[in-house]
Each structure stands twice: as structure tokens, then as C-alpha cells.
Amino acid sequence: MIGMPAELPLAPGLRDDAVAAPKRTVAGLRDRALSLLVLLAVWWIGARLAASPQLLPSPEQVLAVFLRLLRSGDLPFNIAITLARVAVAFGLAMVVGSVLGYLAGRSARFDAVIDPWLTVGLNLPVLVVIVLAYIWIGLNDLAAVLAVAIAKTPTVVVTIREGARAFDPQLDDLAIIYRLSRRRRLRRVALPQLAPYLAAAGRSGLSITWKIVLMVELLGRPNGVGFELNLQFQNFDVAGILAYGLSFAAIMLVVEATLLQPWERRANAWRCRA
């Protein structure tokens, strides 16, 4: 590991799967598929045994509802709205959280200033943030997105702050001596060191963000997956709940697997080269 002072600590959340990911072997894929089939079978048997099909509809029934919602356009419409809210809130939390986290990691003074806010932010129940945002800003999308972003930002700050604290001081010396411009310093020295932390914050951030968005929609929006879930709940429509819930979760899983995980691997790529 020449050129690196020592092994940099791995960003949180990287240890288990991203870096030391077991190879996706054929056997592994088969086991996964099998396990999924078992789940479906259990569900199917459970539906058979359930007191009424309303309580636990079978997979076919849920699929039928899913197809009906798909054709009517309800499901794509609501999923698109929810995705848009997730994207904006997630982007906002990542940008603001990264900037604040970077500053806190680099400046002890700024860290001291922001730390109490972080403590409050991390310990404030998400529900309180959502309700207050609706009361203060109004029952609109601005309040919804802001509430999610505010709820999510503190954890981004903490992750990125940890990354900025782990910066190699030897590289700072280098930047001073070679008079690197601010831009180069950020792009070539800071960001590569921060990338694993950004990826970790993004990955955990997305999965938290979309769950909070559903809650926000449930509490105060007239559309979106969260609103629909609430509607189905009031109608006691378990098939509808499952159709919405499962399809949205599937989409978020795909986003994570196709966008965030590859990025995380790339962010860590130079460490594995030795």
C-alpha cells in the first residue's frame, strides 16, 4: 500500500456487503431465487389458511390488483409523484448534509457550532418534524419535501463529517506546498477521500428517505404512494396495500442496485487495487 499512509478506515456501512461482497455466483443466484419462491409459497399457503381473503389475499389476487392499478394509470402516477418527492428530498439532504458535514469535519469551530443542532436533529422524532412542517409551512409539497430533507440531513452530516475528519493530513501538506487551487484540492484531494462516505450516506440515505416520504404523504398529501396506502388502509384493502407497497419497494431496490451500489464500488475501487 505505497502512497497511502495506512489503511484508511472504511466508511460506515461498507464493511459488510459493498467491499467484502461475496461473489454473485450462479449457486448464490439459485439460492436467492429459491428463497424467494419459498417466501411466495409461504404467502400462498398463509392466504389459503387465512380467515378471509381480505385479511391476506393470495399472490395472484395481489397481482390482479397490481395489473388493474397499472392499466388505470393510478399506480404509475402515484409512484412517479412519490419518486419525484424522494428525489428532491434526497438530493437536498445530500447536498446540504455534505457541505455541512465537510465544514464540520474540517473546522473544529464550525463543528462546535453545529453539534448541538445535530444532536437535536438526530433525536427529534421524524413525526414531529413532519407535523411541524405542515403546521408552519402549510399542507403542501414544499413542507413535505423540506420535512423529509430536514429529517434526513443530520445523518448525512454525521457520515460526511466522519469522512472529512479522516482526511489524510499528509495530503494537506502536499496541497499547501504545491499550491493546489481550491478547485483541484476539492476535486482531486478531498472528493476522492470523501467518496466512500458519500456513497455510504447516499445508500443508507435513499432507503430512509423513501420510507419517510411515504409517511409524509400519508399525513398530508392528496396523492403519492403514501396517500394511496392510507386510502387502501381505510378501505381495508390489503391487496391494494401490498400492490402499492411491494411495487414501490421493488423500484427503490432496483434504483439502489443499479445506481447507488455500482457507484459505491467505484468510489472504493482504488483501495482494492494493491
Binding site: M1, I2, G3, M4, P5, Q170, L171, D173, L174, I177, Y178, R179, L180, S181, R184, R188, V189, P192, W270, R271
Partner: peptide, 25 residues
Amino acid sequence: GVVFQEPRLLPWLTVAENLRLVVTE
């Protein structure tokens, strides 16, 4: 120009990129 006891190259850049990095824009 400085050569520290440890080489202090940026591990995410190639050798040529490490050289190019220090040349003022």
C-alpha cells in the same frame, strides 16, 4: 518541490496524473 520520507502520492491518480496535479493551471 518536496520529497517526504513517505512518497505521498495520491493513490487514486496515476503516476502521470500525480505529476500533472502539481503543475499550476
